[in-house]
Design a protein around this nucleic acid. Structure first.
Length: 263
DNA sequence: AAGAATGTTATGTA
DNA sequence: CTACATAACATTCT
């Protein structure tokens, strides 16, 4: 489920609800079940998002790193909360609410050195104030790899997943197989801006809606999941009704409209 | 109710 | 060394 917007949204919500408080930590079936006690009952200092990664920082600099992967999900419970289900890898709880994590690719205890090592492998994240767009743009413009592959490469740009790849390329009429270096500086810069705007909108809505509500003729709030994209998981192009093409690109399904996105 | 899914990494092969 | 393919891993939803 998650692309960068989900992660940033979680960081924001968890900062509001958990940071600055004493947090009960348990990891019933988790990788650090034995060490959860070291964090239990201490103050959570803050929650940080970078691309698709989350970092929970405790007093004395211990960090819990979470990556949701394809299936990871947080669920919140208010008082009287249930016993964690067998699939729960991490539970964070204050007096008011409990947050359960299931299905993560990663949920591990680490240090700021581990965090730094991880961030070295990530490109700029458009949702972060410290992002340097020119790093991603330069990589695109230098590479002969298909732009559809470059968008999923987290070391080039962090936070884009399969939906935003399909949709951002559609908006610019770009075929996913176009080599990055064929874009040119202006188009590449425009693509960054589009991705950043889509991600920001995603944080606001807490879901992905990439179609223009005016184009659909319905307010944003009344756009259903099935109507929320131009080509991603669509049979026909939401703009011109051509049959959408779907093929494997970089190990994931790529979607494109042959008419709106010629090669 | 089988199958698909908004992901990543390690390993094998060319 | 690069580049690609494949497998492995996580779980829920339709």
């Amino acid at each position: 489920m998650p692309e960068g917007h989900t992660i940033h949204r979680l960081a924001r919500d968890h900062t509001r609800d958990l940071a600055g408080r004493t947090v009960a930590v348990s990891s019933p079936q988790g990788r650090f079940a034995d060490r959860a006690a070291t964090l239990d009952g201490r103050v959570l200092r803050g929650v940080e998002a970078y691309g698709k990664h989350l970092f929970y920082r405790w007093e004395r600099d211990e960090l819990v790193h979470v990556h949701l992967g394809l299936f990871g999900k947080f669920r919140r419970h208010t008082l009287p909360w249930p016993e964690p289900k067998a699939t729960v890898r991490l539970r964070l709880a204050t007096d008011e609410l409990a947050v359960d994590l299931t299905g993560p690719t990663d949920c591990s205890l680490g240090t700021r050195v581990d965090r730094a090592r991880l961030l070295e492998r990530l490109g700029p994240d458009p949702l972060r104030a410290d992002a340097d767009p020119t790093l991603a743009i330069a990589r695109w413009c230098r590479s002969k790899a298909p732009i559809g592959k470059l968008l999923l490469d987290q070391s080039v740009i962090a936070g884009v997943g399969n939906v935003f790849r399909a949709e951002a390329l559609f908006v610019h009429g770009l075929h996913p197989e176009r080599p990055g270096r064929s874009l040119g500086d202006d188009l590449a810069a425009a693509l960054w801006v589009t991705i950043a705007a889509m991600l920001r909108q995603g944080v606001r809505d807490n879901r992905i809606v990439t179609v223009d509500p005016a184009e659909v003729g319905r307010p944003r709030s009344r756009i259903t999941r099935a109507d929320a994209t131009y080509v991603y998981r669509q049979d026909t192009c939401r703009r011109c009704a051509s049959p959408v093409r779907r093929w494997d690109l970089g190990g994931r399904w790529a979607y494109a409209c042959p008419s709106c996105q010629p090669l």
